[in-house]
Simulated assay, not measured.
Amino acid sequence: MSALRLGTRRSALARTQSTWVAERLRALGHDVELVEVTTDGDRDRTTPLASLGGTGVFVSALREALAAGEVDLAVHSLKDLPTAADPRVEVAAVPVREDVRDALVARDGLTLGQLPAGATVGTGSPRRRAQLAALGLGLQLTELRGNVDTRLRAVSEGRLDAVVLAAAGLRRLGRAAEVTELLDPLQVLPAPGQGALAVEVRRGTEDVRAAVATLEDAEARACVTAERALLGELEAGCSAPVGALAEVVEGVDGPELSLRAVVAAPDGSADLRRSLTGDPAAAAELGRRLARLLLEDGAAELMPTSTDRLLTERAQ
């Protein structure tokens, strides 16, 4: 096989994630070349992502390059993938998952509970905004876009008291020491797929698919499958105030898949939390079952009904 061309965005985090995948493929004997692909989300760092088309703007250019044969595989933050499938490509591997939690980076080493009422906390995520508001701490939640460095500088330069980002991204960038608190999922459930990577290949390229499939982690795949099935059944999209976390746990008769989810009003005035357990081999059905339970209990009334009211998730 000739060198594998791995498409990546140019951001530091995207390149770090792509390099992580490339190194593991090289260790298996494959020659891998990184190919930079610029997305609309990279070109425009000021317009709210919902106006640009949601987190899909970070995915579409990579998929176009993949479908056109310009690259052989692409690495995404899995939570950025639209729930609707693209028939031209497939996720050939979900590697072992990083820390799923959200992370607080605050001035003076403060934790969430130590921030004073009125403290300014930056996040571009409606999911984080809603769940943080629901805690009733009196925080001033501020819209924030940009790469990891940009957001962390907002704290170090004194423009914000704190920011909330994905712990996985900070760990991958070697900046976990800057975290002042890892938020317990009991307080703030992560985005569906958070902490996981998706390695996509073009359909029909069986040699590339076989090479990439060696990176697959079955437990990570089951967990994110359940979480994304829930999101798809809710028809919420990755920019809605929905959190979900699946974990493989030991049940009475062996491993079980435990799935928790929250649907919140955007302003945090109300939320709905439910959970179910099921067979890891039927992860997608478990996600759909929990989504239907949430809808039966009133989740649709909490979610925004128009995309122009959404601030899109971006945790990189």
Score class of each variant (00 low, 15 high):
Leu295Ala: 09
Ala67Gly: 07
Glu235Tyr: 05
Pro185Val: 06
Ala220Val: 02
Gln17Thr: 03
Trp20Ala: 05
Thr83His: 11
Leu112Cys: 09
Lys79Ser: 14
Ala61Phe: 02
Leu295Asp: 10
Arg202Thr: 01
Ala166Trp: 07
Ala220Asp: 05
Leu302His: 00
Ala246Leu: 10
Leu294Trp: 00
Leu62Phe: 07
Ala119Asp: 14
Ala299Met: 01
Val188Glu: 08
Leu141Trp: 07
Ala65Lys: 04
Leu272Ser: 00
Glu219Pro: 00
Ala229Phe: 03
Gly124Cys: 08
Glu64Ser: 13
Pro190Thr: 09
Leu293His: 02
Arg9Gly: 15
Ala134Trp: 01
Glu206Tyr: 01
Arg43His: 12
His76Gln: 12
Arg129Met: 11
Val263Arg: 00
Leu311Asp: 11
Asp31Trp: 03
Ala68Thr: 06
Thr39Gln: 10
Cys223His: 02
Leu135Phe: 05
Glu256Gly: 02
Val37Tyr: 05
Thr47Met: 06
Ala84Tyr: 01
Glu143Arg: 12
Thr205Glu: 09
Val212Asp: 00
Gly193Thr: 10
Pro190Phe: 04
Asp271Met: 00
Arg151Cys: 02
Leu165Lys: 02
Arg107Asn: 05
Gly122Ala: 08
Pro48Trp: 07
Phe58His: 11
Ser125His: 11
Ser156Trp: 13
Leu6Arg: 02
Ala210Met: 01
Ser269Val: 04
Arg15Gly: 06
Ser18Val: 11
Glu200Lys: 02
Thr205Asn: 05
Val100Ala: 11
Leu52Ile: 12
Pro280Gln: 10
Ser77Ile: 13
Gly56Ser: 11
Val71Met: 01
Ala50Ile: 12
Ala50Ser: 15
Gly158Val: 12
Ala14Asn: 04
Leu259Ala: 07
Ala300Met: 00
Arg309Ser: 10
Glu90Val: 14
Asp161Pro: 06
Val89Ser: 04
Leu28Phe: 07
Leu245Thr: 04
